[in-house]
């Protein structure tokens, strides 16, 4: 391990602490918002946006995606494309048919 690399890691450590603070803060924020009882659509949107931001922070800094090689990013992009198909298409087929609970209004 060279000196300069060690210094670089030391710098990174400061980033990790900042990311942790942000994550903890966002957790508190998302919980606080849930007590406001926003309308359903808004509540879901806000919670998912906050969760995505947190996940982005973890992936970018703890998992080093921000400085990771391109090959990993391409892999994740491919994965994301299939994930979109998996998330969207089944729900699309579901909207055309009867609800799952036949005895509801």
């Amino acid at each position: 391990m060279t000196e300069s690399e060690a210094a670089l890691v030391k710098q990174e450590v400061r980033v990790y602490v900042m990311v942790f603070t942000a994550l903890a803060g966002l957790t508190v924020v998302t919980v606080a918002i849930s007590y406001l009882h926003l309308p359903t659509v808004l509540a879901i949107s806000v919670a998912l946006v906050v969760a995505t931001v947190k996940a982005g922070l973890v992936a970018s800094y703890f998992m080093h995606l921000i400085s990771e090689e391109k090959v990993i990013l391409w892999l994740l992009l491919l994965c994301a494309a299939f994930l979109v198909a998996l998330m969207a298409l089944p729900v699309g087929t579901e909207t055309g048919i009867a609800p799952l609970w036949p005895f509801s209004s």
Binding site: V91, E94, P99, L100, W101, S104, S105
Partner: peptide, 9 residues
Amino acid sequence: VLLRVGSPP
């Protein structure tokens, strides 16, 4: 998502 969309609130 699919199960929840199919269920009444």
